[in-house]
Amino acid sequence: MSGTEHLDVRREGATLVLTLDRPQAKNALSLPMLVGLYDGWVAADADDAIRSVVLTGAGGVFCAGMDLKALAGKGMEGEHYRDRLKADPDLHWKAMLRHHRPRKPVIAAVEGPCVAGGTEILQGTDIRVAAESATFGLFEVARGLFPIGGSTVRLQRQIPRTHALEMLLTGRRYTAAEAAAIGLVGRVVPDGSALGTALEIAERVNACGPLAVEAVKASVYETAEMTEADGLAAELQRGWPVFDTADAREGARAFTEKRAPVFRRE
């Protein structure tokens, strides 16, 4: 896929790198960006050669959220994509990972501001790396708005509720260190190295059995709200078939032969 004028797409081995590319507007969400994101998630799921996705932003910025100038009635760039929204009124929510969960692991590489809609998209990713100067926050209430990208539901499930409510109700900015302390991101790295670190993590994911990786990710999410008993039963349904794959046999054989496994999604 070729991306759009506000969403750059490239391959790094088995990793698809999606870059929010509207730095002059702090990568604020636009129609071209949303369409490009949605197409990126679909392309990653459809291509078995892609084993992971890295989401990042251009120009030292992740995403400043919705384009408030457009929201105020000053127009949004990319009106020629309007037919895509008409064809699928849910497209923007799928693009923001509100109504879509890719089966491949998604790793966020955050430099600079990741606020409002940026923090909402972040909650749809699986592994999160932040640069030291990255910032986070849900500013909607401070502007008389509602964080309708899923944050009132997801955030309290991802970090302790007291921290979720403070972020949601104060509209204040959080540092990367604070975000790591409350569990919103997993790693804080030197400025300029978030993407490199995310790609290193992706390479480790890519080296694992793809059928196993996808089954593990699916199990984690589908059992999250189950009782322990129901979750353990569901885990067996996801897990046992993995043992009966050629990839599982290859993994055991490679371990015995002290070599790197060659997985074929079989």
Rank of each mutant, 00 (worst) to 15 (best):
Lys217Pro: 05
Gly144Leu: 13
Gln24Lys: 15
Lys26Thr: 02
Arg154Val: 15
Leu97Arg: 04
Arg11Lys: 14
Ala70Glu: 09
Ala254Ser: 13
Ala44Gln: 03
Val54Lys: 02
Glu214Asn: 12
Val188Met: 01
Phe136Met: 10
Arg154Glu: 13
Glu214Ser: 06
His99Asp: 15
Asp8Phe: 05
Arg10Ala: 11
Leu29Lys: 02
Ala116Lys: 00
Glu266Val: 07
Thr152Gln: 10
Glu79Tyr: 14
Leu31Pro: 02
Tyr38Pro: 04
Glu5Gly: 06
Gly144Glu: 09
Pro261Ala: 13
Gly60Ile: 06
Arg259Asn: 08
Ala14Cys: 11
Ala134Glu: 03
Ala194Leu: 12
Glu203Ile: 07
Leu71Trp: 05
Leu34Met: 14
Lys258Cys: 06
His6Lys: 10
Pro113Lys: 04
Leu195Arg: 05
Trp93Gln: 08
Asp126Asn: 12
Ala109His: 00
Arg238Ser: 11
Thr15Glu: 04
Ile148Ser: 13
Val189Gly: 03
Thr245Met: 09
Gln158Val: 05
Ala252Arg: 13
Leu199Arg: 02
Gly117Ser: 11
Glu214Gly: 04
Thr15Trp: 00
Gly137Arg: 03
Asn27Glu: 06
Gly3Val: 06
Gly60Gln: 12
Glu166Val: 08
Met76Asp: 11
Leu169Ala: 13
Val17Cys: 08
Thr152Ile: 14
Gly36Lys: 01
Ala207Leu: 13
Glu250Phe: 11
Ala64Phe: 05
Arg204Val: 07
Asp47Ile: 11
Glu5Leu: 12
Lys26Val: 02
Val213Gln: 05
Asp244Arg: 11
Arg249Ile: 06
Val216Glu: 09
Asp67Gly: 04
Ala58Tyr: 04
Ala70Arg: 14
Val106Thr: 10
Arg128Gly: 04
His99Arg: 15
Leu18Glu: 01
Arg172Leu: 09
Gly231Pro: 03
Gln158Met: 14
Gly36Gln: 05
Met76Tyr: 12
Leu37Asn: 03
Glu178Asp: 10
Cys114Val: 06
Pro23Gln: 10
Val115Phe: 07
Arg264Glu: 08
Asp47Gln: 08
Val242Trp: 07
Arg143Cys: 13
Leu97Pro: 00
Leu169Asn: 15
Phe146Leu: 13
Ile107Asp: 04
Arg161Tyr: 07
Val205Met: 07
Thr162Tyr: 12
Gly60Thr: 12
Lys69His: 11
Arg10Gly: 00
Leu34Asp: 01
Asp191Phe: 12
Ile127Lys: 01
Thr4Ile: 07
Thr125Tyr: 02
Gly40Gln: 01
Val220Trp: 13
Glu166Tyr: 03
Arg51His: 12
Val185Pro: 02
Phe136Ser: 06
Ala58Pro: 03
Gly57Leu: 03
Gly137Asp: 02
Met33Lys: 05
Thr256Cys: 15
Ala212Asn: 09
Asp247Cys: 10
Leu34Lys: 05
Arg82Lys: 13
Gly112Phe: 04
Leu18Pro: 02
Leu165Gly: 05
Gly137Ala: 13
Glu77Pro: 05
Ala49Gly: 13
Leu68Lys: 06
Leu31Met: 14
Leu211Lys: 07
Arg249Leu: 10
His163Trp: 10
Ala109Arg: 02
Pro113Arg: 04
Gly231Cys: 07
Asp90His: 12
Ala164Arg: 01
Gly57Ala: 08
Leu195Lys: 01
Lys217Arg: 14
Ala177Gly: 14
Phe146Tyr: 15
Glu132Tyr: 07
Arg173Thr: 15
